[in-house]
Amino acid sequence: MPDARVPVSTVVYDALRADILSGRVRPGDGIPSERTLSERFEVNRHAVREAVKRLQQAGLVQVSHGGATRVLDWRRTGGLELLVDLPPEDVGVARAAYELRACIAADVAARAAARATDEDRASLAARAAAFAAAREHCVATDGPVSPGPALLDAYRELWDVLVDATGNIAYRLAYNSLLHGEDAVTAVAVIYLRDELLDAETTDALVAAVLDSDADAARAAAATLTAHTLTALSPTEAPSR
């Protein structure tokens, strides 16, 4: 029986989504009928219809009125929101996510430098000071090899200001999707991000560039920071869990 604390349509959606993303059902395959799914999950047909509607909105299936509902190739029809549904512990998935993050980070830094308001700059200075304090505490207590989730949180808060300073909703939504994926593997993320989190000199350079409205310097600093993590996720150098 479905968990009473979870909407029954979500139970159906999650199961079908997992089948599609894992490849257990392939592009072009039809999904079972409403009746079959109702019986399989012991739910009413309304819940099944809601689940299928969500699959359609996610670009996972195509619904043909009067015909079968068929699975699509989600790599060609899905959106960034599917990133959080892929196995984040997979190094290949993590590397893909952080490569996208590196591209976004460079643009975010440059646009924040060009567009930040006085209020944004004040917030950035405050978040940078809080991050520096968290980093010093982490190094003093945990050692530089293993920064903890508290340092990651402080770093995220710094980037939150930068993203908001761009005034670009697309960057914000993409950044949110990347964070949701990272949330699933925080313990591994802090390993991948270790050198980035502990690079005080480049973080300070990034903040100074934004405060000085130097877009080129901000872009360069962001690229240097994120390059640490891409190196950690290279096929030959990815850290073990």
Rank of each mutant, 00 (worst) to 15 (best):
Y13L: 14
Y155E: 07
L193W: 06
T236C: 05
A205N: 06
T231F: 07
I169P: 10
V207H: 04
P88N: 04
T186K: 10
C103M: 08
V48C: 11
V163F: 07
V207R: 05
A170H: 08
L16F: 10
P87F: 06
V145L: 11
T236Q: 08
V207M: 03
L86K: 01
L72S: 03
A140Y: 06
Q62W: 02
V163I: 14
D29H: 14
V12W: 09
L230W: 05
L198P: 05
L80C: 07
E237P: 00
D14H: 11
A47D: 14
N168I: 00
Y98P: 00
E81K: 03
F41V: 03
S22I: 03
E50I: 00
H228Q: 07
G143F: 08
F131W: 13
R219G: 04
R76K: 09
T69P: 04
A112H: 06
E81L: 12
G167C: 00
A105E: 15
R24G: 09
T226I: 02
Y192G: 04
E119R: 09
D164E: 10
T69I: 05
A221Q: 02
S213Q: 04
I104G: 00
A15W: 10
P32Q: 13
L82N: 10
V43R: 14
V190G: 02
V161N: 01
G59I: 00
T117R: 08
A187E: 08
P7T: 12
L72W: 01
A184E: 09
C138S: 15
P88V: 09
S234T: 08
V25R: 11
S177M: 12
D19W: 07
A208V: 01
A106C: 07
V188R: 13
V188F: 06
L60Y: 12
Y192W: 13
P147R: 01
T36N: 11
E237D: 12
L124H: 09
A170S: 12
S38F: 06
R121E: 14
R70D: 08
D90C: 09
C138Q: 13
V8L: 13
R40H: 15
K53L: 11
L152W: 13
G79K: 05
T141C: 04
E196A: 04
T117Y: 04
G23T: 14
P144T: 06
V161I: 03
A109H: 05
A113K: 00
R127L: 04
A220E: 07
Y98F: 15
L179E: 07
A122S: 12
L225Y: 02
D107N: 06
A165M: 04
A200I: 02
